[in-house]
């Protein structure tokens, strides 16, 4: 869908400007665009329908709040077949902390499938091929998993994704869990860290645009001393906070 509209826009009067689009085209494209549901209606409503493709979304929160859960859930939800109102895409999960638990992914996939069968059973009748695809294992086989052990590997993996995405066109979401960990542990030169990180976020943003996929970055929190008291804030500093289109903070009340 987005391909055709982009094609049309380059044909238009502003075709001379490479990559340019009118606001009207963008609006109609946006309306055509499907979003990845977070599985929570209220959150979807706040985000305007779910996690948007072509955008970078950052998710932060205190330890144990459920960032990884949301990450795993998105890798499953992105695979909801088109017939059921999903994207039917694949997912890349970049795990820097070792907290991706495949058993949990299996559970979430099972839950997602039983939800789909309950809610869209009438629609599925028209698509007999669907039930075979609606197996937890076939969901898991569409999650590409990278386990990162140092920031060098993290940079390398994100560079390599360029080639990887070229081969795997169906990838609709990249989850990085978490963007922070290795940079926070091992990187001593903070100015250089900021530049390397912004290079990385530019790259991710360009993937998001080019392949029309969603990028979700999980971030840790840190304490900041403001006006005489401690506050929580997302890690990696103020420059980084500009890198993302959306920022979600998970918090318990």
């Amino acid at each position: 869908m987005s391909e055709t509209s982009r094609f049309r826009s380059t044909e238009g009067s502003h075709g001379a400007l490479k990559g340019a689009q009118t606001a009207w085209d963008m609006l109609s494209e946006e309306q055509m665009q499907k979003h990845i549901t977070t599985g929570c209606e209220e959150l979807d409503a706040i985000l305007g329908g779910g996690i948007h493709c072509k955008e970078v979304t950052e998710v932060g929160g205190v330890p144990g709040i459920g960032k990884t859960q949301l990450g795993i859930q998105l890798t499953v939800n992105v695979q909801i077949p088109v017939e059921c109102g999903g994207l039917g895409g694949k997912a890349v999960y970049i795990d820097t902390e070792g907290s991706f638990m495949v058993e949990r992914a299996h559970q979430i996939a099972e839950g997602c499938i039983s939800d789909l069968l309950d809610n869209t059973a009438h629609r599925l009748k028209d698509f007999p091929a669907c039930p075979e695809r609606l197996q937890p294992n076939s969901f898991l086989s569409n999650i590409f998993y990278f386990r990162i052990c140092s920031y060098t590997e993290q940079i390398a993996t994100i560079n390599y994704l360029e080639k990887f995405l070229e081969e795997q066109k169906d990838v609709k979401i990249i989850v990085v869990d978490s963007i922070t960990f290795h940079f926070r542990q091992d990187f001593d030169d903070l100015a250089l860290r900021t530049r390397v990180l912004s290079g990385m976020s530019l790259k991710l943003m360009s993937f998001a645009k080019k392949y029309s996929l969603a990028v979700v970055l999980l971030n840790q929190v840190t304490t900041k001393f403001v006006e005489g008291s401690f506050h929580l804030t997302l890690a990696l500093g103020d420059t980084w906070s500009h890198a993302c289109t959306n920022r979600i903070i998970l918090q318990s009340v």
């Binding site: 495949v102 569409n142 999650i143 998993y145 990278f146 990162i148 060098t152």
Partner: peptide, 21 residues
């Protein structure tokens, strides 16, 4: 790009992780 490709850890699907487990 070349260096990244070599330094990058191998890609696995979640299914193969489950089978390993």
């Amino acid at each position: 790009a070349r260096i990244s490709e070599i330094a990058c850890p191998p890609c696995r699907t979640a299914l193969s992780l489950l089978e390993d487990r």
